[in-house]
Design a protein around this nucleic acid. Sequence first.
DNA 1: CCTATGCGTAACAACATTAGTTACAGAAAA
DNA 2: TTTTCTGTAACTAATGTTGTTACGCATAGG
Lengths: 140, 140
Amino acid sequence: MKNSSRYTVAIHVLTLLAYCGSEPVTSEFIAGSVNTNPVVIRRLLANLRAAKLVSSQGGPGGGWQLLKAAKQITLREVLAAVDGGSIFPMHSSDPNPRCPVGRAIQVVLEGHFKSAQLALEKDLQRTTIAALVESVKSTS
Amino acid sequence: MKNSSRYTVAIHVLTLLAYCGSEPVTSEFIAGSVNTNPVVIRRLLANLRAAKLVSSQGGPGGGWQLLKAAKQITLREVLAAVDGGSIFPMHSSDPNPRCPVGRAIQVVLEGHFKSAQLALEKDLQRTTIAALVESVKSTS
DNA sequence: CCTATGCGTAACAACATTAGTTACAGAAAA
DNA sequence: TTTTCTGTAACTAATGTTGTTACGCATAGG
């Protein structure tokens, strides 16, 4: 995941929101659970809001809430929300087009990479935020 | 993939070695195909050698060769060779153990992450370097 | 209308990772 | 012995990630 913890933190936050029920939760409170800065949380949640997973409310009593039922949110959509593109980065500078392998390798790999990523996503789709809440509760 | 092109380049290099047959190929030649510096290639190939995928030979006429038949090398082993650990990084600093969610989330996620990564690897296992060589040759 | 609260975002710093480069020691073939 | 390679350390530059401060703006509640 791009060597970043954004995906893990996003799942953590959504699980926390589901765990807290329907009450709005502030970014400061969330940051306390994740152990980071509220701004980091707000930046991440802005992505999840763009994906229609959460909503935000300003002012006193405001905060963040799930926009979909926890049972309807899968780890697959969370991944798509925080890390849009491909799991496998291509060459940083394009390979040599005068080499037969260099010329073709990216096109050839693209299909295999997409297939592998699809397999990954299919597996992630099996898990919902609601399931994680249950697991968290039973991990007493 | 850690936001690095190492995996893609590794596949490129192995495909090139297979494409070139049994002749040793120098890191300079490989770098010409990948469009990078020979030292970058040697560093990467050092990993693949540690995984027993290639061998190196110094001196004139030396270079790099496959140590296994291209048909026996799958994209799964290549991934393991260049990027040992987990696809999904956990929190950069540990979550708050005084929060029920923060306390449990990592343990809960670990299983789901491993399952997803296994699905990914199972798919990558279906493709061999030999198959890539064929695809490259037919992409004329 | 005022105030406190909380989001939205820009700007910046600190740090880690990636990629590229130079340099040089050492092994091996001819 | 010379040439051709690998093996690696050291350094730079570019980029990405994370954390932090600061401040504008909207809103709820008196």
